[in-house]
Design a protein around this nucleic acid. Structure first.
Lengths: 217, 217
DNA sequence: ATAAAAATTTAGACTTGCCTAAATTTTTTG
DNA sequence: CAAAAAATTTAGGCAAGTCTAAATTTTTAT
């Protein structure tokens, strides 16, 4: 069996690997896990011994097939519990991350599969993230960041890349929700903020930082 | 905050305290937690420092008010999750103990109260155990053990005192379920086994060990 | 191309929760 | 009621996961 902590490192390595191309660095992991670089190095040696990561000293790290399968298993649990918390218990999408962070470590596979069935085999979590398959593969979505869309295009908000309550509450305050369709009117040359139109009558400026974290199709 | 392990000790002390009158012994705790007596002593010192137990060296241990409140909080979580697993996910009452043992440590109070509401404020878990109140008190049931009932009485099975899959599966095999009413025909003088009648036509012998673990009203 | 800066690893130490072995206290028994 | 047995605690140690400080490697910049 794998410890709580090992599972969290695998999940974090996976998350960093898709955000930044190439190998994941020790410092990036230290920042994400709120620990020090020296602690990360210890854990990397341990995960490498267990063949869950490929690790070359000073060079960074990447998941093995087995490591990725495990990471996706944890992410599947996390996202299914988030669906449960929002759909069944009525929590807001900005409230569920920390609880799911604990629930994802409950060990029973049978529990996860029954939960999946109870929830009607959802494809996406409340933030629009795809739910990995039981076999341990991540469905691809083809979404792009709003910050990469060209002016004039009409798109639909499908997900977010940042799950902090602060970001999600900011979206609510400016009136953006999952499924919301919008047209990108112009991109400000000065600060890269975007003028987006939601209703025929109402348009608003969205900062580049926000646009980077919105997934659209 | 309290650790996983501390919570388990408090819960175990509570469980032993109601089974045996008086103070709970180090050895009993060591057996229940599957550790050694020396390890228990370490933890008792720690819990006493935190004012969660009254502890006198060599004399045994008992919960403080605060310790009991915390123990009942954990037991409330455990039993609510068991209701969820059986009522919503369709698990058998003999399958849920280990999963609930993990789920009971999820920290959010808000989660527990929402779960309670979602389940319709159940009064009893799938084994007939009463669910402690949010305020941290244990509802009393007035049930007695089947082994303490006099011959001739008619009673109804309200709960069990033993939660192992082995015991619960044995009950199913001999045809006893929660809510099942039965008449105690006679008590065998040799081995204290009980002849109980369920249907007008069918009677069966129940061992003293089984009767000790059945709660009736 | 090499010196300074940044990133990473190593060394040694701390905490939690557990262990074994030995010492101590309590209980049982002849 | 004293000696043996049982229960409990103390002492010293170990593994996991973390830390700080120092050493090493890689990267950056002059």
């Amino acid at each position: 069996m794998h410890s709580f902590t090992e599972e969290n490192y695998l999940k974090t390595i996976y998350a960093l690997a898709i955000r930044q191309e190439g190998e994941v660095t020790t410092n990036a992991l230290a920042e994400m896990t709120a620990t020090k670089a020296a602690s990360v190095t210890d854990m990397l040696r341990k995960l490498a011994d267990k063949q869950l990561i490929h690790y070359r000293k000073y060079q960074g790290v990447r998941l093995t097939e087995e490591g990725e399968r495990l990471a996706l298993k944890i992410i599947r649990r996390h996202r299914l519990w988030e669906v449960f918390l929002v759909e069944k218990l009525g929590f807001g999408w900005d409230e569920v991350h920390d609880m799911a962070e604990e629930l994802e470590h409950i060990r029973s596979d049978e529990l996860v599969e029954r939960l999946d069935q109870y929830l009607g085999h959802p494809q996406f979590d409340p933030h629009g993230d795809p739910i990995p398959t039981p076999a341990g593969t991540m469905p691809s979505t083809g979404y792009q960041k709003l910050s990469e869309v060209a002016a004039g295009e009409e798109v639909c908000i499908m997900g977010v890349m940042e799950h902090s309550p602060e970001f999600l509450q900011h979206l609510a305050r400016i009136g953006l929700t999952l499924g919301c369709s919008l047209t990108l009117r112009e991109i400000n040359a000065f600060d890269k903020s975007l003028l987006v139109q939601i209703q025929p009558e109402s348009a608003l400026f969205v900062s580049h930082d926000v646009a980077k974290n919105l997934l659209v199709a």
